[in-house]
Design a protein around this nucleic acid. Structure first.
Lengths: 154, 154
DNA sequence: GTACATACTGAGTTGTACTGTCAGGAGGTA
DNA sequence: TACCTCCTGACAGTACAACTCAGTATGTAC
């Protein structure tokens, strides 16, 4: 049971934007450099996050990506759901979706367990926001990069 | 993020043993038939469960598999750990193990999140035992198979 | 309206781990 | 000795994750 790298990278990138930049658009190449994630791959991940409604983009010079809402309003659950597609532990526990094809669907003791566990995990991630991560970062002393563009623009 | 089929099948099989049979050895072919899991594949899974110390086996005629402890003493956490190998959400959050190779190891905000989430999930599975599942099965009205061997042995 | 910077899209590639299958061996019981 | 059951390791196929690439669209500045 592993989260895909899309979730791991996605969370790191979202944190990176929230932590290093305020409301200014962040370019993908900067995030790529800071987080050591392939630029091309990040582009792909960011499309998922955009579809999830938690990331906005702006094209052209001085363009880039920015959070769609305030960091305190974006939960980790949303981020993981956007990158992972869902928050299920097993395929057959997709409550409310169309039939799963499992012959034991509905009369399976373990199915109920997977459902509860997934809900449990979802609740945990829902309690955390990007702002919480920023606070952690600050207290852990994670270095915060100055936005170099302003330096050169003086 | 999905659990492997080894965990799903493993839990189903453990439940099957606890639910359908008491202390008598259960043969793999019976479990295979009831749970619709390939016999060969089950053998493989059961080796993991044996290594985890929650399943015992007996060879020869009237042999089979039995729970190593009482159903109330076997938690789902043990079962999943035995089949899954661990209970991590990401590779880099393997607390206490040797270095993971991640360049952000130790100074990563997200790492701490994955650790907590995994601990959370582990705690959830630790609160449930096979006995709990049997209770659920009974109240859900899951059919319990009579042990056919005794019928034919009259 | 040209040049440039940035995001956007979809198709390709590669590796590896999951999900089994198979053949044969080992160990008990009668 | 015969049979039953578990045990083991090797093997195969397939799907998916994890990227990579080429090219396109769209916005800003001059």
């Amino acid at each position: 049971m592993r989260l895909s790298t899309k979730s791991r990278y996605g969370l790191r990138a979202m944190f990176d934007i929230a932590y290093n930049c305020g409301t200014a658009p962040t370019q993908i190449q900067d995030i790529s450099r800071r987080q050591h994630i392939s630029q091309r791959y990040l582009e792909q991940i960011f499309q998922s996050l955009k579809k999830g409604g938690i990331l906005k983009s702006k094209r052209g010079p001085q363009g880039g990506y920015m959070l769609a809402r305030a960091p305190g309003e974006i939960t980790l659950k949303e981020i993981i759901q956007a990158t992972e597609g869902d928050l299920l532990l097993v395929e057959c526990a997709s409550k409310g979706r169309k039939k799963t094809g499992c012959e034991f669907d509905g009369v399976c003791v373990t199915q109920s367990v997977w459902l509860e566990a997934a809900a449990n995990l979802g609740d945990f991630f829902a309690t955390l926001t990007l702002k919480d991560l920023c606070d952690r970062g600050a207290s852990m002393g994670v270095s915060r990069e100055q936005d170099l563009r302003f330096v050169y623009q003086i």
